Simulated assay, not measured.
Amino acid sequence: MTSPATVGASRDGVAAARHLASWLGLRLGLAATPTFAIMAVLTAMIGDSPADMLCAAGHGSLLGGMVPMYLLMSAFHSAAWLKLISERRGR
């Protein structure tokens, strides 16, 4: 049998875990966009390795290669930044 205090503590723990997960998810989302953008720039500047030839095997595709892939990943992960900007403008 559980006491009301135990149930309350359990609910507080679940709420704290959800808050921590939300906070970490936002921070990871904010880190992803600039990380992928930096990777795209670095790959464009120093990316003349044999591995790049494997990734660019798109047979003339506009999206072939690592630089466009990193730019797309940066764009797809920009939702956290857009959410942050919209929340700050709403204040």
Rank of each mutant, 00 (worst) to 15 (best):
L30F: 07
G64E: 14
L28C: 10
I85N: 02
G13I: 03
R18L: 13
A80I: 03
M53P: 00
G8P: 01
I38M: 06
V7M: 04
A5L: 15
S74N: 01
A32G: 04
M45Y: 04
I38K: 00
V67K: 00
I46R: 12
G25R: 13
G29A: 09
M1G: 14
I85S: 04
G13F: 01
F36K: 00
T33C: 08
T33L: 03
M39V: 03
A21N: 06
W81I: 14
L84S: 09
H19C: 07
L54C: 02
L82W: 05
G47I: 04
L42Q: 12
R11K: 06
R91M: 11
A51I: 14
L54I: 11
S49L: 15
A56T: 08
S78G: 05
L24K: 11
V7E: 02
S86P: 03
S86A: 15
K83N: 13
L54F: 12
M53F: 07
P68C: 02
R89W: 11
I38Q: 01
R91S: 12
M53I: 11
Y70Q: 01
A80R: 05
R89C: 04
A31F: 09
D52W: 11
M53N: 07
S78H: 01
P4A: 09
F76P: 00
L84E: 11
V14Q: 09
I85K: 03
G13D: 04
T33Q: 05
A31E: 06
L72G: 13
I46Q: 12
V67N: 00
L24S: 14
L28H: 04
V67L: 01
R89L: 14
I46G: 09
G64C: 06
I38D: 00
R89Y: 07
T35C: 07
W23A: 14
M53T: 13
C55I: 10
P68V: 03
L28M: 12
D52E: 15
P4T: 05
A9E: 07
L71P: 02
S74G: 15
I85Y: 07
A80G: 06
G58P: 08
M66H: 02
T43A: 10
M69A: 14
W23K: 12
L72S: 07
A32T: 08
